[in-house]
Amino acid sequence: MSELVVRTVGLSKRYRGGVLALDRAELRIERAEIYGFLGLNGAGKTTAIRMLLGMISPTAGHAELFGRRVHAEATGLWRRVGHLVESAAAYPGLTVRENLEVARRLQDARDRSAVDRAIEKLGLGEYAGRPARTLSLGNLQRLALARTMLHDPELLILDEPANGLDPAGVVEIRELLRTLSRERGTTVLMSSHILTEVDRLATRIGIVHRGRMIEEQSADELEQRRNRRLNIGARDLGAAGAALRKAGFDPQPARDADPPLLELREPRALDAPDSVAKLLVEAGVPPTHLAVAQEDLEQHFMRLTADAEPRNA
């Protein structure tokens, strides 16, 4: 049986003033999973992350890491966790090396060479002697990530890990996280606004909206659930539509298509586009365009969050 590293049970937070930031969230993250935690600004991601780290206490429910209940002074737990919450921060007057040395001691990591290893791993060698206040946003992010990995944690909780990184840095961090997960069994919980990044990296994805988990799927399951459609172009779209309707399909104008297209969502069309082509040819309106399209994570996310919005009467 696989080991649950993160588990929340009805995790809720209502702030003073009545704002319900998180409502009965149920998270299950297994060892070595890379969990993409998605949501719009203010959806409740950071509140959930802070509750997982014992920084804020839930108003209902609870969180468990490695099977142990989370609370602020669960000091034994924090040896196994590395975290980056919201934006990268560092002591501005301390050099990169000093910032990491402070973090190493606070993390009670006994291995003194951990600082050098983290500097090398995150490509900070050139900046090791510079005060943190002189670092660019990208290098500050690297420093913050180095801090999270100093003590070889089993769980990494990263809020926007790619924030401020250049494209090469984004790829580098992606590969680093993938390697940690694959080779060391490190579990990663990451929130990100860069959905393509999450799409490439995450093995499981949870979407939170207005404080509620509206979807949680493995990347494979999600792949199946994303909307697929067969886009059809023809010189006479009206005639093509009539032929399709006659054959029992329900063609609809494709949204935002230029030039205009029809789309079919029926499984029998998606599974056998060649039969649709044959049908149109036989009806005298041969297709000029025939392609199965699938929404990407961004489109899926936008559709889900739009569907979850309360409708105006």
Binding site: L53, G54, M55, A72, E73, T75, G76, W78, R79, V81, H83, V85, E86, S87, A89, A90, Y91, P92, A103, R105, L106, Q107, D108, R147
Partner: peptide, 15 residues
């Protein structure tokens, strides 16, 4: 002010 408060939290060093 430096937003470093969160660095101090969730570490094995007690608050």
């Amino acid at each position: 002010a430096d937003r470093t408060c969160r660095i101090m939290l969730a570490t094995p060093t007690r608050r």
